[in-house]
Design a protein around this nucleic acid. Structure first.
Length: 458
RNA sequence: GUGGUUGUAGUUCAGUUGGUUAGAACGCCUGAUUGUGGUUCAGGAGGUCGUCGGUUCGAGCCCGAUCUUCCACCCCA
């Protein structure tokens, strides 16, 4: 008995229909990225472990997929190291790992090529990444990230452009009801100062990030669990419950941040981003200033954002922020950057849930040639050649088969037209064009058929 | 990593306290139609019940291990 094939946990195949839909998303994202002056970059699937480890925290290191050294990978390890467990053995048997995200390889690339790059450097990168996580719904061990980053400038125009790009991508995808939540790490720092919890920033961030998930009371408890005084936690309540328009929230915070340089800086940045956007005449920029937005990644130092589509069961579909020292760990100091990422898998689920995939995203072949015998099949080949010369996606049923079988094939593959060639058609030169959707058939010369199919596309 | 959960036909699922030959729907194949798909009708194929071991006269059902699925926590896209 042959064994049943399987794929590794947390990985997926993408069939033709899925790929058509995924490509629809990728195309929209790529088009927009390039329109804003971002250039494509690809980096290797594998990086040296020295590049990857220590960049994502202890948890992150555990989630790295490591690649065994080639050949006799145990030969360099001593008895002692083998008996010492995985910690001492690992560096001896593995030197490479699969990329965990696109940001670190990007930073590595920038440092390695710093003398050749025109700064500011704008790149986009669409590639799979791997995490040895436990899979769940919407969480895989292999998934795609679509990153766009700018390094080498502190200009807030970049932030504004990110907002514009998100708006443009979503417009192309047909998503209309969504919020771009924005906040600023300096504002969060300002809040910790204002409530008397200086230096507890990261604890504060971890706690409030869960606000919409677990509610205010549990967040306050979490703050206390993480070493923030009950008094300070209480003082944050009015800030977290801020309401009103963006301008009103900013005005209220300005008052609270009288003595906080960080807080003021954050608010100024935010105002400048909003001001810059006014030059671009958006009807609705979808921005929502949310002081409870924190985002886990600790390397963010400036603005941060996250996109949530409303009325769907899916979490955030995009996010990003500004980091001051991304390349510092690789020895290149003082390079500020800002970047963001689209989560393709989640966008896919959103489009599916809202039924927003256009029907032509899934059509494949436009015309199938149906024949009856060797002679008509041969005649069909020259017809096929003409169709393809005219740019029509077309194919001929390769085997001799009953028409029923050939039509069923066209039906299953969702092919729009069939062109039937029998002895009558061969004799007259007028072929039978059948529209599979309506079932209507017409006797037409090949030129007329080509006109009709291509005309239908325009 | 912690705790729970699932596994029966290609797919979604039934399957009685452990008792003969494991079912349905959809899908698939063939025919009704030797030049016509989607609808209809008739027929057919398809399962070592996740895997290995144990209990039993007897296991899809009970027990153990393992893999797998999904969920919560942690963390994250």
């Amino acid at each position: 008995m042959s064994q049943k094939p399987t794929i590794p946990k947390g990985t997926r195949d993408f069939g033709p229909q899925q790929m058509a839909k995924r490509n629809f998303i990728f195309k929209a994202i790529k088009t927009v990225f390039e329109k804003y002056g971002f250039m494509p970059l690809e980096t290797p699937t594998m990086e040296n472990l020295s590049v990857l480890t220590g960049k994502y925290g202890d948890e992150g290191d555990q989630l790295l997929f490591k690649v065994l050294n080639s050949g006799d990978y145990l030969s360099k390890a001593s008895e002692e190291e083998i008996s010492g467990g995985s910690k001492s053995l690992l560096p001896k048997i593995s030197e490479k790992g699969l990329r965990y995200d696109l940001t670190v390889p990007f930073a590595r690339y920038v440092v390695m090529n710093q003398h050749d790059l025109a700064l500011p450097f704008k790149r986009y990168q669409i590639q799979p990444v791997w995490r040895a996580d436990k899979p769940q719904r919407g969480r895989y061990r292999e998934f795609y990230q679509c990153d766009a980053d700018v390094v080498g400038t502190e200009s807030l125009i970049c932030e504004s452009e990110i907002i514009l790009m998100i708006n443009e991508v979503f417009a192309q995808l047909g998503i209309t009801d969504y919020n771009i939540k924005i906040n600023h790490r300096q504002i969060l720092k300002g809040i910790t100062e204002a409530i008397g919890a200086e230096g507890k920033e990261s604890e504060f961030c971890v706690a409030i990030d869960k606000l919409d998930k677990i509610g205010l009371e549990k967040v306050l408890k979490e703050m206390e669990d993480r070493g923030i005084s009950a008094e300070a936690a209480q003082k944050s309540v009015p800030i977290l419950e801020l309401s009103g328009s963006i301008e009103e929230k900013i005005a209220k915070l300005k008052d609270i941040f009288k003595d906080s340089e960080s807080g003021k800086k954050g608010l100024n940045d935010l105002e400048e981003i909003l001001e810059t956007l006014k030059s671009f005449e958006l009807d609705n920029n979808h921005i929502d200033f949310d002081v409870s937005l924190a985002r886990g990644l600790s390397y963010y130092t400036g603005s941060i954002f996250e996109v949530k589509v409303n009325n769907v069961s899916i979490g955030s579909v995009s996010g990003g922020g500004r980091y001051d020292d991304l390349t510092g760990v690789f020895g290149l100091k003082g390079l500020s950057g800002v970047g963001f990422s689209f989560g393709v898998d989640r966008i896919y689920d959103v489009l599916e849930e809202l039924n927003l995939f256009p029907t032509d995203a899934t059509t494949s072949t436009e015309a199938l040639i149906v024949h009856f015998d060797e002679e008509t099949k041969k005649y069909g080949l020259s017809v096929l050649n003409q169709l393809r010369k005219a740019g029509i996606k077309s194919e001929i049923y390769p085997d001799k088969a009953k028409p029923k079988k050939q039509f069923t094939y066209a039906d299953k593959k969702n092919i729009a037209y069939t062109i039937v060639i029998g002895s009558d058609e061969m004799a007259s030169g007028n072929l039978t064009l059948k529209s599979m959707a309506s079932g209507q058939q017409d006797q037409l010369a090949l030129d007329a058929i080509i006109d009709k199919i291509t005309g239908h596309n325009e």
